[in-house]
């Protein structure tokens, strides 16, 4: 036996969309005219990042443009996710340098241990978040690319309060 559809009669005042639409538009108009705007106009308007934001890496360089890295191997050792690949070698003057230095930024968890452990203040995390790429390979930053980065480097602790008290 087919069920019967119960039809509820509603007054027009309740079923009309005009009231609801007018109410919605009034909210829109109120926010449009309000001086207290929240929406950020990205990408025209960039985020202001805290100095301790931990983003993609940057390699510090000497005045002559050479990377400061001495290939000591502490960052790959301390890295909890093994995202740093380092092959040390000897240059013409007998100095130790990184023949291969690659950071897989996809693997990186941005803990900042590498920056903390670096004895020559070469590798730094960066105050940076715009990293979109078209391929995964591009996320493996080699030494050249790490040197080219121009963003600010991360402050791992507040100079006024180094122990975070």
């Amino acid at each position: 036996m087919p069920g019967e559809v119960k039809v509820v009669e509603r007054p027009r005042a309740e079923s009309s969309y005009v009231r609801a639409a007018a109410k919605g538009m009034s909210i829109t108009m109120r926010h449009l005219l309000s001086p207290n705007k929240k929406t950020q106009q990205y990408p025209d308007e960039k985020w202001e990042l805290a100095p301790r934001t931990r983003g993609t890496h940057r390699m510090a360089v000497h005045e002559d443009g050479r990377a400061k890295c001495v290939a000591c191997g502490l960052c790959p050792t301390v890295c909890p996710v093994n995202c740093i690949k380092l092959v040390p070698a000897e240059d013409e003057s007998g100095e130790r340098y990184a023949a291969i230095y690659e950071i897989d930024e996809f693997r990186c968890i941005f803990c900042g241990y590498c920056q903390e452990v670096c004895p020559v203040e070469a590798i730094h995390l960066g105050v940076h978040y715009e990293n979109a790429e078209y391929s995964r390979e591009r996320w493996v930053y080699d030494l050249e690319r790490l040197v080219e980065q121009e963003h600010d480097v991360t402050a791992l602790w507040d100079p006024q309060d180094p122990a975070s008290q």
Binding site: A71, C72, G73, T77, P88, A89, E90, R96
Partner: peptide
């Protein structure tokens, strides 16, 4: 052996 490996590696 110079610069080949760290002792902990």
């Amino acid at each position: 052996f110079v610069f080949k490996a760290r002792s902990w590696d």
